[in-house]
Amino acid sequence: MSARVEHLVTSGTFSLDGQTFDVDNNVWIVGDDEQVVVLDAPHDVEAIATAIGDRRLLAVVCTHAHDDHVRQAPALAQRFSGAGHEVPVLLHPADRPVWELTHPQVATTDLAHGQVVTVAGTDLHVLHTPGHTPGAVSLYAPDLATVFTGDTLFAGGPGATGRSFSDFGTIVASIRTVLLELPAETRVHTGHGDDTTIGDEAPHLQEWIDRGH
């Protein structure tokens, strides 16, 4: 039996470059009745812990280190650690400078492009997709025909690149050379907002480039 995907939305703020915004974040829980991984732990540790219940949390995987995606990651990992089981917080090392804006003295475990995170018999393949941040990653689950893109790709275009640590050309390259190489039917679970598919987004790449988000 393969893993299933559960969806939770939490609300809070995103702060960077001296500005703060209200945001709603998608939290994705992948697993079965016994074990799960959590993709991003933003604002409400109680809500996420309730959704996990008494299942074993294997890891908190950060798609990137903006505060609205990682604020509760250390607390969630600590809450489900114990009795010889340490829950790692997984983050691409290129995002360590962004992480330290929120958690300056908290350790993380490195994620690498090509690494596989396995939960409930289902493999999540780590894809380094920088641009929104230097260490942004997506998680591709072939068995689920799903990719979790964080803030790299949304329904309607790439994630924002107008702030520190971001670059428009880099995010477009990540989408073109990594994400759009996935099968067209692959469902895209994003960091904010609605789902889309690779096939729905692929035809609009040149439009995004011309707009220069």
Rank of each mutant, 00 (worst) to 15 (best):
V116L: 08
V45N: 01
A49G: 13
D110W: 06
T109N: 11
G131W: 05
E34P: 00
C62K: 05
L127T: 04
V172M: 14
E207R: 11
R163E: 10
G114R: 09
T196S: 15
V98N: 08
M1H: 09
R4M: 13
F21H: 14
G169S: 03
T122V: 02
I209S: 02
R211T: 10
W99N: 11
H113M: 07
H204Q: 07
L124Y: 06
A94P: 00
P42C: 14
L139M: 09
L101E: 15
L58V: 11
L205Q: 08
H64M: 04
E6A: 14
D195V: 09
T122L: 03
E100W: 08
S164T: 15
D95S: 14
G82A: 08
A202Q: 13
Q72N: 02
A112W: 08
F154D: 05
L101M: 14
F80Q: 11
Q78D: 12
D123K: 10
D68K: 03
L90T: 05
T109Y: 10
E207K: 06
V119A: 06
L205E: 15
R79S: 07
T13H: 13
D54P: 00
G156Y: 12
S11G: 00
V38W: 01
W28A: 07
P74N: 09
D200M: 01
D195S: 04
W99D: 07
I198Q: 03
G31W: 04
P88A: 02
G156R: 08
D17E: 15
L205A: 11
P97C: 06
V147S: 04
H132W: 04
T161P: 08
L90E: 05
D24G: 03
V119H: 09
A65V: 05
T10A: 04
R187W: 06
G159F: 01
V87R: 05
W28T: 15
T186F: 04
R163L: 12
M1P: 12
D17N: 10
T161L: 07
A145W: 00
V45G: 11
A155I: 00
S15Y: 01
Q19D: 11
A49M: 07
G114A: 12
G159R: 07
G131I: 12
G135S: 00
I48T: 13
A41C: 12
R163I: 02
I198V: 15
P158H: 13
D40A: 08
